[in-house]
Design a protein around this nucleic acid. Structure first.
Lengths: 119, 119
DNA sequence: CCCACCCTTCCAGAATACTGGAACTATTGA
DNA sequence: TCAATAGTTCCAGTATTCTGGAAGGGTGGG
């Protein structure tokens, strides 16, 4: 991820509407959501939502797939992880010792039991 | 970190100027930088820089300490970690299995126990 | 084909953010 | 106290983004 893309990612999350959309899609997981359903769930006019979805899609934070007349949007978690890696890189590159500690990846614990720790 | 604070954090990183300032401060580490030095390094007018530093400070992304006539700014890495935790929480809360895998904390290798908890 | 439907793009007005010169406050040194 | 320095706030002009109605492009059912 380069600087320009990182900026687009941050812009994708830097407003209440966009953060709401993103969080909604994250909660939906793989199922994602059709544009109209997002608009209904968040009570946003279609044009306004489309404006934001376009920006988020351009930033790679969401993916879009056509299903007949519908457009299904999904959160792209890989892009978020890349963004975190970008920030970590920023940090560690100059000051390894002062970098982010691996704080608690256990909050997530996807499938590696080795990463488990105290609750 | 609540939603409003998260938005401020993202706004702090969503422009080239601010991202440049933040990265510069990260590279400086604990030493930080005085406002005038930042302005000189990045070739930004004092007023413009002050505008952005205020926003970043309000978001908690940088800290400021007075040293005589000077104001020394430092990147607040703890806030960035909290932001990452906020995003992770978003993700894991609804879909633990599909959450961010612990990608490679080894890229950092902090191993300083002092950096474990946030200050 | 034709229409209903879903969503997007177009566009203009509103709102917000950015920029930087001038003035101001705070601190230091003489 | 006075002058110089560091940085901020004030303020205006400029630029950018956001908003949502109207119109347009695809898609599927009849």
């Amino acid at each position: 991820m380069d600087k320009a893309e990182a900026i687009r990612v941050f812009e994708s999350l830097a407003s209440a509407v966009r953060l709401d959309v993103y969080r909604l899609l994250v909660r939906q997981g793989e199922e994602g959501m059709v544009a109209g359903a997002i608009a209904a769930a968040l009570d946003i006019p279609a044009t306004t939502l489309s404006f934001h979805l376009k920006a988020m899609s351009h930033a790679g934070m969401v993916t879009v797939a056509q299903e007949g007349r519908f457009l299904r949007y999904r959160a792209n978690l890989a892009q978020m992880r890349d963004m975190v890696a970008f920030l970590t890189e920023e940090c560690c590159g100059g000051q390894p010792g002062k970098c982010l500690a691996p704080p608690e990846p256990a909050a997530c614990t996807p499938e590696t039991p080795a990463t488990r720790r105290k609750g």
